[in-house]
Write a protein that binds this DNA or RNA. Structure first.
Lengths: 211, 211
DNA sequence: TCAATACTTGTCTATATAGTCAACTTTTCA
DNA sequence: TGAAAAGTTGACTATATAGACAAGTATTGA
């Protein structure tokens, strides 16, 4: 770790950011595919086409690199999370949210997989995030659903299960891609196929919730 | 590998089966938590409380052990898969299937997680299974849905997405347990909470499909 | 231009890991 | 009961892996 007090001259340097990003991208793919323990610094280095020692210049160690990757990913999630805003029309809000989540699955499949792997492993590196930002977000959204229910705008369902169902369904298309490709007999999931899937999910969730 | 031609006497031995099962169980947990690469033979041995060399007496190598664990798991899946049978009443059939899948998630969470990890990694060790048994099963179930649609018993949705949604939602409770526990502010998922979740899923899926 | 700082990387080390092996104990059955 | 087969396990090896380090090169700003 370079803990320079940085009182001197010199510039922030965009080399730093560029190199870090390159490594982070390679690391995200490796961690998403093999998990924290299964990933190796060597393979990340090869994938990023830098010497292994270079990674240790920018990141203290494997855990530090993993933490940086996770942080990167969570920042992406947040923007999607906030799509589920408090508005009057549930159909519109939920429709937009499902579209946003599906779009995220399509454009950031590795981020989704990384998150899933971490969860399946018991989320040992996410407890802080889950206990704070996530918990708060979840409570707030729960109350949105509850107000809809109170106003008779949707069926009297436990909002938690509705949220879980939306997350599960939308992330499935990123996380379980091999299964989907074989079931649908396709080589890859096109943007159109994602749109169709989003429409099906919206149909079932909205109608199923009595919206 | 003991490649004895076994023309001699001796018995099949239940010691074999007992030890194998013990190791397989420990291996399932380890592979489910850390994936194939991240799992270590040493930790599996410690968890099963046998010396590492003992594992190599029963299983040729790490890949062989992983294959045996996967095979074990897939056999469990099959029994749940077949719950989705061809009957006249969609509500009854789908209801039973969702209950069966949720029950599987509750009683075999590690099996579900193992499968999920393998999928997220690109299913490198499942191509044979996916291409054969799974593909066939999927086609057959698709046609069941199609006949329901033709008979006007449910909305005209792509059956694939309905099946994906059921799988995604039911497996979510096993795979993403940490997220669920924190969201619901619980220490563990009780049988009752699983039943509630199953009821919500059934409500949304059945109503959402117009059944 | 030049000195300070940022960045790069080949080489090295300690440890962890998969897998082997041969000596050993237990179980079986004739 | 005893010999053959099944099962057990401590000690070993080769390799992979995370990480350190120092000697180097590139970049910056005064």
């Amino acid at each position: 770790m370079t803990t320079s007090i940085s009182r001197g001259p010199y510039k922030p340097g965009r080399i730093r950011e560029q190199s870090r990003d390159l490594i982070l991208q390679a690391a995200e793919a490796e961690f998403a595919c093999h998990g924290f323990r299964g990933a190796t610094m060597q393979r990340i280095a090869e994938s990023a086409q830098v010497p292994k020692a270079n990674i240790h210049y920018y990141f203290s160690n494997k855990l530090g690199l993993y933490g940086a990757v996770l942080e990167n990913t969570l920042n992406l999630w947040d923007t999607v999370f906030n799509e589920l805003s408090s508005q009057d029309d549930p159909a519109h809000v939920l429709g937009r949210y499902i579209d946003a989540k599906m779009n995220f699955s399509r454009t950031n499949p590795t981020a989704s997989r990384l998150f899933a792997k971490e969860m399946i492993s018991g989320a040992p590196h996410l407890s802080a995030y889950l206990q704070q930002d996530y918990r708060l977000w979840f409570k707030q959204r729960m109350s949105i659903f509850e107000s809809w229910i109170a106003q008779g705008k949707m069926d009297d369902l436990d909002p938690a299960h509705v949220i879980f169902m939306i997350w599960a369904s939308t992330q499935y298309y990123a996380d379980f891609e091999p299964q989907i490709l074989i079931a649908t007999e396709a080589q890859s999931q096109s943007e159109a196929s994602y749109r169709q899937a989003a429409n099906s999910i919206k149909h079932i969730i909205l109608k199923g919730c009595g919206i």
